[in-house]
Simulated scan of single mutants.
Amino acid sequence: MRLPDGHRPVTEEVILGDCFRCDRGALQVVRVGELVGPRGEAPLYACRACTERLTAMHHHTHETPVRPYAAADAPTDPR
């Protein structure tokens, strides 16, 4: 499974499993994160199509924030 250039999953391991986003099963998935709660954590696995969609959503959010005023108050990179 290839991800968009410059993006890496939480783990490199590709397994056969269920995608948390599209609810399809028996797909090649990679671990993309986890849900953490007071009783433990649950790993999140996503298929290639959903991983690409999540990456696109991430880029879109950074390019056009829903609340532009929030970006104005965000700390800047001191470099």
Rank of each mutant, 00 (worst) to 15 (best):
H62A: 13
A46R: 02
V32I: 15
A46V: 14
M1T: 10
A56Q: 04
T61L: 07
E34L: 09
H7M: 05
H59Y: 04
A70F: 02
D18S: 12
G17R: 02
G17N: 09
D18G: 11
P78W: 05
E34D: 12
L3K: 00
L16F: 06
P38I: 10
T64V: 11
T76F: 04
T51I: 10
C47W: 02
P75Y: 14
V14H: 02
A56W: 00
P78V: 10
P4A: 14
R67P: 00
G33R: 08
R67C: 05
A26R: 13
L3N: 00
E63N: 04
A56H: 01
V32D: 03
C50R: 08
H59E: 11
T64I: 05
R67W: 01
H60W: 02
E63D: 07
P4Q: 09
L35R: 14
A72I: 11
D77F: 15
G37N: 11
R24T: 05
M57D: 14
R48S: 11
A71W: 02
H62R: 11
T76R: 15
A72C: 10
L3D: 01
A72E: 12
F20M: 05
E12I: 05
T64A: 12
Y69Q: 11
C19F: 01
D77M: 13
R39S: 12
D77G: 07
F20T: 01
Q28N: 09
L54C: 12
M57E: 10
A72N: 04
A46K: 01
M1D: 05
R53P: 00
C22N: 05
C19H: 02
R8G: 03
A46C: 13
V29K: 05
E52R: 14
L54M: 13
E52T: 14
A71I: 03
Y69R: 11
T51K: 03
R24P: 00
A26L: 06
R2G: 01
I15Y: 01
A42T: 07
G17T: 04
L44I: 10
Y45T: 06
R48I: 03
V14P: 00
P9Q: 08
D73K: 15
L44H: 04
A71S: 12
Q28W: 03
R79S: 09
E41W: 04
D23G: 08
G6H: 05
R53C: 05
R79F: 10
T76V: 06
R67D: 12
I15R: 08
L44A: 09
P65D: 14
T11S: 13
F20V: 06
G37D: 05
L3R: 03
D23W: 01
A70P: 00
G37R: 05
V32Y: 07
R21G: 02
R21M: 07
R39V: 07
G6K: 04
H58Q: 11
R48H: 09
V30P: 00
V10H: 06
V66S: 09
Y45P: 04
G40E: 08
D23M: 07
V32T: 14
L3S: 02
E13M: 06
R48D: 08
L27A: 08
A56P: 00
P75H: 15
L27D: 03
A71Y: 03
E34V: 08
G6Q: 00
